[in-house]
Design a binder for these strands. Structure first.
Lengths: 221, 221
DNA sequence: TGTACATCAGTGAACGCGCGTTCACTGATGTAC
DNA sequence: TGTACATCAGTGAACGCGCGTTCACTGATGTAC
């Protein structure tokens, strides 16, 4: 009614960018209550808009939920990249610039896993929204799922495994679909921790289990 | 109105055993649609009883859902025990009665894992009902979760890991909480297959991944 | 053995709730002449 | 530069739905005397 043309890019009429606002509201809902809490009417309520206004920007409730899921995957990628940066820096500090590619590859795979698990612990609702929404594995080429570094979680995992082959610590014949093995282990621990029977275990204990799980993947791949 | 005293144990007034009937209806609902499909009103509808009759036997909707979850876990245990029996018989046939305890232990752990995954593939709705219902790990001592063999899924896993220690192929210091490592790997693959991004992959491919995952656990523990 | 009574499994009707979605609309904005 | 018009983002009201749950009840069964 009263705030026209918000100096920015102006790609929407009245609101500025209602689509983005609804998406952000949906992300907050998922953060607190997981995918089931992403309720179209509640998102419009939070933005201060009538319920049917959402239909200008999302085909239906499912489309909103999928957009939220994509955004959550992008946040997972961010968490993974943070751990990747820390791990790389630590290695470079320790051994100097001449880090062995094998050590780097292993550190990167661990970082990918620990970032994933750290995110699941820190944001269980968003984690569930990211991966509990049924969607086919579309090769992760959707930029909506990429983090600030431009990579999706799946792409980050793929890169770490490629490093293993490059460093000669993973035979090429065992490379195909190795993503699914590593992903399964880490994803299973994440879901058992946040949704399942491992909920409520002490954080120290879970931390230890987490390290041993990453050991298992490293040894068993 | 018309069928009194059904020759059986007669522990309920009119219906025979409404609690059991509602539970079975709930299990069928979960089989088709997972835990979200376990709707109290629909269960009563199927049994042919008014909605509020359910409150004589379950405190509320959640209590019904938990009973269904327990029943589903018992079915998982059955699937695991079937694979255990097959694996044991095969080993005894192959090597004669004198199977090495190490070979038996490894075969049992694999069977526990493959039974779990086989059930997840065959009955995704029940699998989700069994483990997606938030409940704390109460040491699996609840007989409601036990299969025909009297063991819960968690107990079967525990036994297989104990065999590893007994056979000398798992150091005692790595035994504590080893359940969580093996369970995570297998559970993660199961959920990625039925709910997540691995849905829709060809069965052959998934079968191969499954075997390699069990290899990984065996090697990495 | 017969009768009065207590129990309690299941009934019938209704409640409030919040959801996703559709309808015909309004009125500020951008555009064409 | 001024005016008429088309666009289309957001409105207001309403819909049908199915849910979980509560209320006062009924009437067949089992039990006590």
């Amino acid at each position: 009614v009263s705030e026209p043309r918000g100096g920015a890019s102006r790609d929407t009429y009245r609101h500025g960018d209602l689509r983005q606002a609804l998406l952000e509201a949906g992300v907050e809902l998922a953060r607190v209550g997981g995918p089931d809490a992403v309720v179209l009417r509640e998102a419009t309520r939070r933005v201060g808009v009538s319920p049917n206004a959402a239909y200008r920007h999302f085909a239906d409730h499912r489309a909103l939920l999928e957009a939220v899921s994509d955004a959550a995957q992008a946040l997972v990628a961010d968490a993974m990249e943070e751990d990747l940066a820390v791990a790389t820096a630590a290695l470079v500090d320790a051994i100097g610039g001449s880090s062995l590619t094998a050590d780097l590859a292993r550190a990167h795979l661990r970082a990918v896993g620990s970032g994933y698990l750290r995110f699941a612990r820190a944001e269980p609702g968003l984690f569930r929204a990211a991966f509990s929404v049924p969607r086919v594995l579309d090769r992760a080429d959707s930029p909506a799922k990429a983090g600030r570094g431009g990579r999706t979680p799946f792409e980050l995992l793929t890169l770490a495994l490629d490093e293993h082959v490059g460093a000669g610590i993973l035979p090429a014949e065992r490379r195909p679909h190795a993503e699914f093995l590593a992903w399964s282990a880490v994803h299973g621990l994440a879901t058992l921790m946040i949704d399942g029977p491992l909920r409520g275990l002490h954080a120290d204990l879970l931390g230890g289990v987490e390290q041993r799980l990453l050991d298992m993947v490293e040894q068993g791949l």
